[in-house]
């Protein structure tokens, strides 16, 4: 009878840890979903200019490796992807003024995936940026 109790407790422990584990990984899973989708979208829409390693092209196209710029402009990134950019920006202390083309065909969730991928690659580590954040940020620049 004592042995049966021990087995029961052991099962309970395994069950609880498995449950907690799966709870934690729900968030992880969501992040992974955004990140992998983001990578595919990056290859299709961004890689031509910004390169697979995010280093851009000479003084023409800025790299995506300036972690400070990407953090400070986090709420603008969705707008830049969707509507392009036509202003002078400073990346790693260098000025870039080459016009970026808009990607107006992309859905909010795709833009969110792209932002998640970019802000967690090339030396960046900002975590998940979901479609609700994208919708909120896009609303701000669309009303401008």
């Amino acid at each position: 009878m004592k042995r049966n109790n021990l087995v029961c407790i052991l099962f309970l422990i395994i069950f609880i840890t498995a449950f907690i584990d799966s709870c934690q990984s729900e968030g992880q899973l969501n992040y992974a979903r955004y990140y992998t989708n983001g990578k595919q979208l990056y290859d299709t829409h961004c890689q031509n200019c910004h390169n697979a390693d995010g280093k851009g092209l000479q003084a023409l196209i800025p790299p995506l490796t300036d972690t400070v710029f990407l953090r400070q402009n986090r709420s603008r990134l969705a707008c830049i992807i969707k509507f392009g950019l036509n202003e002078k920006i400073t990346i790693h202390g260098k000025e870039y003024d080459f016009q970026m083309a808009p990607n107006s065909q992309l859905a909010d969730i795709d833009i969110a995936a792209l932002v998640t991928y970019i802000t967690n690659s090339f030396g960046n580590k900002q975590g998940l940026y979901d479609d609700a954040s994208a919708a909120g940020d896009l609303e701000k620049c669309e009303s401008e």
């Binding site: 031509n48 200019c49 390169n51 092209l57 000479q58 023409l60 196209i61 016009q99 970026m100 083309a101």
Partner: peptide, 15 residues
């Protein structure tokens, strides 16, 4: 110069 599609790749390779 304002080409958003294949030109940057081409010029990166031509470089």
């Amino acid at each position: 110069t304002s080409c958003p599609s294949i030109c940057p790749v081409m010029q990166r390779n031509m470089l």
